[in-house]
Design a binder for these strands. Structure first.
Lengths: 158, 158
DNA sequence: ACTGCACTGGACAAGTTGTACACCTCCTGG
DNA sequence: CCAGGAGGTGTACAACTTGTCCAGTGCAGT
């Protein structure tokens, strides 16, 4: 099979990432392809699940949640991970959570208004009796900002 | 100071998240406010840095990168973190990287096409001489999908 | 040679955007 | 107490974009 995306797809995605409020017509002008082509490709990218949605992208820091941390949880395994996930999803400060291999069981990304507030969030997490231990790593600086564009280029064979 | 966002901002963000390709006019109709109001608020949210952009959101798995992992790096500290960050940013599979407190120095999120491919990516990371050790946690399942909407609601005092 | 698929380029009505304006209301500082 | 500012409403208009359709072209696989 060919790669999931081709050069035109990559250019569409890059232009859209650079100027998000751009329209289909403007995209087609810049890429020098027909408008229908851009429209059809965007539809296909979405159907294939490559484009999952369009923001808006929110910055927790700008919302007043300046502290970010990664928390590794150790859980009572016989109760299952899913029930813990339900608990975690009720806490707004938990931005995401994954089950993982290794010494911990679940890794989650959380935010808080301050270091003192971080304690409150962690307390909320460990308040659930299915969670045995939480080990916290505070993120000091974002060295590489979350990005997927280089990956798309790579997937296209660029 | 008042909270960073109010109830109308939250509704705008939620509607936009639910139906991303919606227009300003349609937003104003659903929220029963004037079009200019929605337009002005979106501008302000962007100026204040709360909305940082509008997708497109890409799914690495759909691009063929089905394996996700978190890698903790231990680095030669006297050389500084920034130069390591430059190295990491040249690797497309590194989606993000943060300096952290604790036993490691840098935590990054990476993806790969398979477990075998993961080895290649890790090798690329540790190929740089400033990196002493890498410790990898493979993400098995996404228990809580990345989200910021509950946080916005909380920030608005809801 | 035939079929299916993707792309092109053109057309149309209907809807949306950017922008401007006049006016209202609430809040704050002098 | 009042002036000024910020944020809201409603209206208007031209210019542009969208959704949708169509006929025709070129290429790949059977």
């Amino acid at each position: 099979m060919s790669s999931a995306v081709d050069a035109i797809d990559v250019m569409i995605i890059e232009l859209l990432a650079a100027e998000p409020r751009i329209g289909v017509l403007e995209l087609s002008r810049r890429l020098k392809v027909a408008r229908g082509t851009v429209q059809a490709r965007l539809d296909r990218l979405q159907v294939r699940g490559i484009i999952t949605g369009y923001g808006p992208d929110l910055d927790p820091a700008a919302l007043g949640f300046a502290v970010m941390a990664f928390v590794t949880l150790e859980i009572r395994q016989h109760e299952g991970h899913d029930i813990v996930a339900v608990h975690l999803s009720t806490i707004p400060e938990v931005l995401e959570a994954h089950t993982i291999t290794g010494s911990g069981d679940i890794l989650c990304r959380i935010v808080a208004r301050s270091n003192a507030d971080l304690q409150r969030v962690i307390d909320e997490i460990v308040a659930y009796q299915g969670i045995l231990r939480a080990s916290t790593l505070i993120a000091l600086a974002e060295q590489v900002r979350f990005r997927t564009l280089p990956l798309v280029r790579k997937a296209s064979g660029g």
